[in-house]
Nucleic acid binder design. Structure first.
Lengths: 235, 235
DNA sequence: GTAGGACCTCCCGTCGCGTGAGGTGCAAAC
DNA sequence: GTTTGCACCTCACGCGACGGGAGGTCCTAC
């Protein structure tokens, strides 16, 4: 028995018969022989190649990458380094998502989850791509947790300000002035003191009245903009 | 202008027109109105929904998950927790791959990379699924780096033993005995002292002569099994 | 003689869109 | 008046790596 059938090879390798068919179809691991009735017969060389493919796949390479790796085996090291870089990038992305989620789950009640998300989402599309790139690089240097913490603080400030408005606290109230001061500090930390970005943020904020958030009936048109501006003028 | 065209909405949201079409097609975010010529007109409510979808997508949820999240918004928290768990699992997988790759890149010359991988791959399919689960849980408790280090040591021992064989060192040589002793220690650490797994490993090793590794013309049938067994008998 | 298994070859479905191809509607520039 | 150009429309195929099923063949065992 020096030849293998698909089923036996599937069992031995832990892959499925369908996968072996697929590899055969695309010419990645072809059964070199066939029986008279058309059944695949894998030679020792085929099996060897299959295990090479399997091992490379276990490192997360695509079938195309596996194919090229096996065609010119000298290029394994650069390929692996590229794969390592890709995995590192992926790890960072996953970590960013994880910290977003944990920050959300820790800091918010169930009913506020969706609206919080919606707010973040809307405000995140307010900047030009250059400014976004800039913000992102700054965010990267701060680390995802710090960014999430910052966002959470900001949302909390908005909540408190809105609360004061609802309670009828005058814009000249020192408590309001204090919140606005915190707000501006937060903004400075967020923008890293970059004047252009601050201006963009300010512009996005002022344009609120005629932009998305207004159109979709957000509380943004409830006068918070004016309220904050009045407080700033008074301070 | 309280209605939005696809193009404008795409620009504002950072999504593509095609994506908006897709969401419309599958009924996730439908343009509630159409002009007489059939152009989509998004109402404020549609836009709101789009931003909710976008925010949920940014957390890594699938379109199906987003849809169900928006249909019964009470279930957000469990959904997020599930997503967090999935992301955590994914993070672990990515980390495992990364440590495999770094271990490989650190410890091996270019030409040995592929054959090393191939060996690992073949030996990894030698155990029953129960035993594999067992090994995996032990591996999890050891941490991926330790596992890779262990594998690397094992492969290094195999290399040295084969070298001795090639050099004609007798199996009774104390240096060989020492290597075999290290080998057995490594095995004990790998199997965690579990007798059944040790037996399986032993069996897989002894069956080498008639199994895959022989069939594919591996050096395993070069007498290393016998050599090691003779050394053990002598020690 | 027939029941069961293992094998074969199509071929459609997945997920989230990208990327055309081919046509319509509408405004400004010639 | 027409041409150009733009934004929009509806199909419909393509990707990656297979899963899964339909419908048929082949071989063995009872």
């Amino acid at each position: 028995m020096t030849r293998w059938s698909v089923g036996d090879l599937a069992k031995a390798s832990g892959l499925t018969v369908r996968t072996l068919h697929h590899y055969d179809e695309i010419g990645l691991v072809v059964a070199s022989e066939r029986t008279s009735s058309g059944h695949r017969r894998y030679t020792p060389d085929d099996v060897r190649r299959l295990y090479q493919v399997r091992s490379l796949r276990q490192l997360g390479l695509s079938l195309a990458e596996v194919r090229s790796a096996l065609s010119r085996s000298d290029s394994l090291r650069p390929l692996f380094e590229a794969q390592l870089a890709a995995l590192t990038a992926q790890a960072r992305q996953v970590e960013a998502l994880r910290s977003r989620l944990t920050a959300l789950l820790d800091g918010h009640t169930t009913e506020s989850l969706l609206s919080t998300l919606e707010m973040m989402s809307v405000y995140e599309s307010y900047f030009t791509s250059d400014q976004l790139a800039d913000l992102r690089s700054r965010a990267a240097s701060m680390g995802p947790e710090a960014v999430e913490a910052l966002k959470a603080s900001w949302l909390e400030l908005v909540r408190q300000l809105r609360q004061h408005m609802a309670d009828g606290t005058p814009a000249t109230d020192p408590r309001v002035a204090d919140l606005v001061r915190q707000w501006d500090e937060l903004g400075a930390r967020f923008t890293g003191g970059d004047a252009a970005i601050q201006a963009a943020a300010q512009r996005s904020w002022n344009e609120n009245k005629t932009s998305i958030s207004t159109q979709i009936g957000w509380p943004a048109d409830d006068g918070l903009v004016d309220y904050v501006n009045r407080a700033r003028a008074a301070g």
